[in-house]
């Protein structure tokens, strides 16, 4: 019971922090929509072309705008000592990584999920595909949160070159992009592709606590 209380208070703190920093999340979403506009200006307003490549554009932009918020993933908690206090309260580093991953999914990725229907209207994606898009997005964005946790914990002590973290996320998100865009375009083998995507999620979810926990421990020991 005490353990559950700790988890609830952890998420309450995250909620308070994200509520006070609401403009950051909104800026992310504005970046997402502005990029859609830029894409359409550069391609041209032909409706057929846009609906053909719309899903790919949506995925690319989701990836880019979720890497934008990576800097805040562990950095603030690391610098004001909150990570250490949470660890002293009985959470292992791997468990902190899992908690932070879900918090990133809830407070950064869910707003994107909510704004997808509007983006679909802008990109001329038909309504039948919306449900597939939603399922693949919700699995894929959890994978992106796990990858973001790994890369941002790796780069905690990296003061010079922060863009490296985004590059790491992009390298490992390539299979996610391949299979999740495939879901939309090949609806007849939806089941097999969703299974592959789910498998990737399980692999990444298993690697995440190990890798992020080790990196967090290293950074705290050597700070």
């Amino acid at each position: 019971m005490k353990f559950l209380n700790k988890i609830v208070s952890f998420y309450y703190r995250e909620y308070k922090l994200n509520l006070s920093g609401l403009q950051d999340i909104l800026t992310n979403i504005i970046f997402f929509f502005i990029s859609i506009f830029i894409f359409i200006f550069s391609i041209g307003p032909d409706r057929e072309t846009i609906s053909l490549i719309g899903v790919g554009i949506l995925w690319t932009l989701l990836l880019l705008s979720s890497t934008l918020s990576l800097r805040k993933f562990y950095q603030d908690d690391f610098e004001n000592g909150n990570l250490l206090i949470t660890h002293l309260n009985g959470f292992s580093f791997g468990f902190i990584a899992i908690l932070k991953t879900f918090s990133h999914f809830l407070f950064v990725q869910i707003p994107f999920l909510l704004s997808i229907p509007i983006a679909c209207i802008l990109l001329n994606i038909v309504n039948d595909k919306l449900i597939y898009l939603f399922i693949s997005f919700s699995i894929g964005s959890l994978i992106l949160s796990c990858l973001g946790s790994i890369s941002s914990s790796m780069n905690l002590m990296n003061q010079r070159n922060f863009l490296l973290g985004s590059v790491i996320v992009m390298i490992f998100s390539i299979p996610v992009i391949i299979f999740s865009v495939g879901i939309i375009n090949m609806e007849e083998n939806f089941n097999s592709l969703i299974n592959i995507l789910f498998g990737i999620l399980l692999i990444v979810f298993a690697i995440n606590p190990w890798a992020s926990g080790l990196c967090l421990k290293l950074s705290l020991e050597n700070n």
Binding site: M154, R160, I168, L214, C215, L218, N222
Partner: peptide, 27 residues
């Protein structure tokens, strides 16, 4: 390339070598 850049961009050697090893394993 990312491994080479990681080797160049960390200040602390102990952190750098372990982080690079983890990245090599994941990659």
């Amino acid at each position: 390339l990312v491994i080479i850049f990681m080797n160049l961009s960390f200040e602390n050697r102990v952190v750098r070598e372990k982080v690079v090893a983890i990245f090599v394993l994941v990659g």
